[in-house]
Design a binder for these strands. Structure first.
Length: 298
DNA sequence: TTCCAGGGGTAGA
DNA sequence: TCTACCCATGGA
């Protein structure tokens, strides 16, 4: 076994612990949260087909990525690990304007300004879209189970610890018949959506990479997301957040519960009035809602 | 047993 | 654009 370390500068301010704890992506395989060390690990399959383990921590003002690997890593492999880490931690997103708005809005949002607001995401868009589909119409325990079943059934194993596996590649799922895919996982009616997504990603991944195009409007990208089977308004808002666009609020049972508990009495919940609560946050609505939620239930 | 969960697709109005 | 109905699965 060999171990290689990478260190990356963190933009300041940056709250790494909050990035891990603020939403539950760190609880979904292949991510593994290490609460005591304030770190997480995950198995990654690189473009070179090497399967490595990344352990990511931020003990000071830098990110430390410890890579456990079986064979020698090339400069290209290391560059890929760096790029994937930067994407997961959103190191290149600018939250300056959001923090300014938080300070102006007062409590509870003023507590955001010292570096909170970054929500962990996956290195690849396929993984994030599949996981969002797995959050629909099911409790969180079911989401974890479905994601774990896909990773165990179709993920590439780490050569030094075959029980640890990467998130499945689109081509692995696309190479299976829908029937075989369904028989090896319990995804319910979501199975055809995820299988088709894998087929489409494998056939034209570049089309999906266009969703990351910063030059396009959120409504353009939202329209394309809604064209994906299995993605409705809630899931589109969630994927937009994972793309770094916070304009849309994911209206689901969690949102409605918070609204009924905090802002509406008895049965006078009104969706338009509820959405209007966050209107003044403009392009930061998702984060304003999300941290309002965390503050209320903490 | 029944309800429903970090909803979405479809048909029909 | 809105509504009704159906959709697998499993926890409560």
């Amino acid at each position: 076994m060999a171990t290689t370390c990478l260190e990356l500068d963190l933009p300041q301010p940056f709250d790494f612990k909050n990035l891990l704890q603020a939403h539950s992506w760190v609880d979904l395989l292949p991510n593994c949260y290490h609460a005591e060390e304030i770190s997480f690990s995950r198995i990654e399959e690189l473009s070179s087909a090497k399967v490595v383990e990344l352990v990511i921590a931020a003990p000071d003002e830098r990110v430390r990525v410890t890579i456990r690997h079986a064979s020698r890593l090339s400069a290209g492999d290391l560059r890929e690990v760096e790029n994937r880490t930067r994407h997961m931690l959103r190191l290149d997103e600018d939250f300056t304007e959001f923090y300014r708005l938080c300070r102006r809005m007062g409590k509870p949002w003023s507590a955001m300004a010292p570096g909170k607001g970054r929500l962990l995401r996956s290195p690849g868009l396929f993984e994030d879209i599949v996981k969002v589909i797995c959050t629909t119409n099911i409790q969180w325990g079911g989401t974890r189970r479905m994601v774990a079943e896909m990773v165990h059934a179709f993920g590439s194993p780490h050569p030094l610890d075959p029980e640890l596996k990467a998130f499945p590649k689109p081509e692995t799922i696309a190479s299976l018949s829908l029937e075989d895919f369904q028989n090896q996982t319990r995804l319910g009616y979501r199975a055809p959506f995820i299988h088709q997504l894998a087929v489409d990603f494998y056939a034209g991944g570049d089309t999906f990479e266009n969703l990351r195009d910063g030059g396009r409007t959120t409504s353009e990208i939202r329209k394309e997301l809604l064209a994906i089977k299995g993605i409705g308004s809630y899931a589109a808002a969630s994927v937009l957040m994972l793309l770094g666009r916070y304009d849309e609020i994911p209206v689901d049972s969690v949102f409605q519960q918070l609204m009924r508990a905090k802002y509406f009495k008895d049965n006078d919940f009104d969706l338009k009035k509820a959405l209007a609560i966050y209107e003044e946050w403009g392009q930061w609505k998702y984060l304003a809602y999300w941290f309002d939620l965390l503050d209320y239930y903490q």
